[in-house]
Amino acid sequence: MSYRVLHYINQFFAGIGGEEKADISPEIRDGLVGPGQALNPALNGEAEIIKTFICGDNYFANNIDAVCAQVVALVKEAKIDALIAGPAFNAGRYGTACGAVCAAVAKECNIPVITALYPENPGVDLYRKLIPIVESSDSARGMGKAVPAMASVILKFLKKEELCKSDHSCLMEKGIRINMFYDENGAERAVAMLVKKLKGEEFTTEYKMPVFDRVEPRPAVKDMSKATIAIVTSGGIVPKGNPDHIAASSAQNYGEYDFANVKDLLQNEYITAHGGYDQTYANEDPDRVLPVDVLRDIEKEGKIGKLHNKFYTTVGNGTAVANALAFGKEIGQKLRDANVQAVILTST
């Protein structure tokens, strides 16, 4: 009795057509289609592709949730044991689709999934933390390598066997940090690493220096006297009592506070919730972190059009970049919806 595998592919690999057929709606076929014919033998009889789910890349992009739901339903109905998507190489929409269906199926059906993408495929950044991805070359010429790699990994997942060294070398890093206890304490490890580094011997760093993304600068505000300006802070300024319980460290939320009638942040009306700096000064005068008093003066003098009536705040102490990103996106959208032209962000 071999494992039942579902294969997800796009219109191109199904042989239906190219860009002109990218809008085709999902089609389910029994058995193998396109690259499934290479994948199936690689599964060694231990697993078999029994159905292929075909979807146009554009259709998928416009109906992500619906198509994922269809795939999930098919997995349940056809009692599928594992999902293979792609390989999508460097095809952006296809790679994103493969990542999305794998993530949905992994979450909803809790079965092994695998896809193969070229490192620069946008699907990688979106899904690498959620699903296993085999690293592939940038075009279908890499099919010969991607197929056996995917097959080997999915079989091990199905049989609940440990991945071997060559499996690990084919898989992309999730980029997730997992705690572990080493045999020696950190000091011993540091001195040992230094000795190696001084000798010019190979050593492995325990943590690779981080890389941060960049965004395009926005064009300048043309007429400040007509602009609505908002203020946002990571310095943790909140109404006294910290009503939204923003944590002193590792904040999981941000606050939104109306201050339309506030001319000046006063001691005991506003406090700081931030646990990473000496709170004395911010508690004495919260304007030192969120400069409401001078902005009100500037507003009165007509130098800005208006100070937006809400400020946004979180605690930047030990707060994960992913959280900050999520908060930023939400706050940004709210400010956009409120027709704010520019934001002053303060941090501590």
Binding site: K174, I178, G186, Y207
Partner: peptide
């Protein structure tokens, strides 16, 4: 580095 605690990337 007082403890054996550390982390790795997966």
């Amino acid at each position: 580095g007082f403890t054996r605690n550390g982390a790795r990337t997966e």
